[in-house]
Simulated scan of single mutants.
Amino acid sequence: MNMRKASMHEAGLLSDLSFRSKAHWGSMGIPILAIIVLYLGFSIWIGESARAIVKHAMDNNYNFSTTTAEMTAEVFNKINPQRRGMKSSNYEPANYSSKFTLGLHYFWGGHVWVSHQYETKDTGFKEWVSLDLRLVDGKWKAVNVYIAP
């Protein structure tokens, strides 16, 4: 009988411990979920900023200024078709599209891949643009670019 009471007591302790661990992980789930939601929110923000940067860099009439620009001069010159030496007419926004964006980020910067294409009667291309971004004064600024056709 004593052994039976002891085993029941041990079983009670074990079930109590398993309950505590479930409760502990349940309380940890909310902060973990909040971190995941924040990370995804920042990924969307950085992705939309990257799309806007690539779209602005495509425009020959973009008012580029190094003091207020959302990208460095090097990034602008590497993305802009006319600056890259491509045969291009005036930029027509209706012929431009951005299909897919994937953004990874850390506290002060991030890396984004953007798939975009531009087609006119004279020229056309579809390529992946890979951007390194830094958070500067609450806005994302492209500091480096790699283009894969």
Rank of each mutant, 00 (worst) to 15 (best):
A50P: 05
A50N: 10
A50M: 08
A50S: 15
R51Q: 12
R51I: 06
R51Y: 04
R51S: 11
A52N: 12
A52H: 12
I53T: 04
I53H: 01
I53S: 02
I53W: 02
V54S: 03
V54E: 01
K55Y: 07
K55V: 09
K55I: 07
K55E: 08
H56T: 04
A57L: 01
A57K: 00
M58A: 01
D59T: 05
D59M: 02
N60V: 07
N60A: 11
N61C: 04
N63A: 13
F64H: 09
F64R: 05
F64W: 03
F64I: 08
S65D: 12
S65L: 08
S65A: 11
S65K: 13
S65H: 12
T66L: 06
T66M: 08
T67Q: 08
T67M: 06
T67L: 08
T67F: 00
T68E: 06
T68M: 06
T68N: 12
A69G: 15
E70P: 01
E70T: 15
E70M: 13
M71T: 02
T72D: 03
T72A: 08
T72H: 08
A73G: 05
E74Y: 08
E74I: 11
E74S: 15
E74A: 15
E74R: 13
V75C: 03
V75S: 01
V75W: 01
V75M: 04
F76Y: 14
N77F: 06
N77T: 14
K78G: 02
K78W: 00
K78N: 10
I79M: 03
I79E: 00
I79H: 00
N80R: 11
P81F: 02
Q82H: 13
R83N: 04
R83V: 03
R84W: 08
R84T: 07
R84P: 02
G85Q: 10
G85K: 14
M86H: 09
M86F: 12
K87E: 06
S89M: 10
S89G: 12
S89A: 12
S89D: 11
N90Y: 12
N90H: 13
N90R: 15
Y91L: 00
Y91C: 01
E92F: 07
E92I: 14
P93F: 05
A94W: 05
N95W: 07
N95F: 09
Y96K: 05
Y96C: 02
Y96G: 01
S97A: 11
S98Y: 03
S98A: 13
S98L: 13
K99C: 01
K99V: 07
K99I: 06
F100Y: 14
T101V: 15
T101M: 10
T101L: 06
L102S: 11
L102Y: 08
G103Y: 03
G103K: 04
G103F: 02
G103L: 05
L104P: 00
L104S: 11
H105T: 10
H105C: 07
Y106I: 09
Y106D: 05
Y106L: 09
G109D: 05
G110S: 07
H111W: 10
H111K: 15
H111I: 12
V112W: 03
V112D: 01
V112Y: 05
W113I: 08
W113Y: 10
W113E: 04
W113A: 09
V114I: 15
V114G: 10
V114K: 06
S115C: 06
H116W: 06
H116Q: 12
Q117R: 15
Q117C: 09
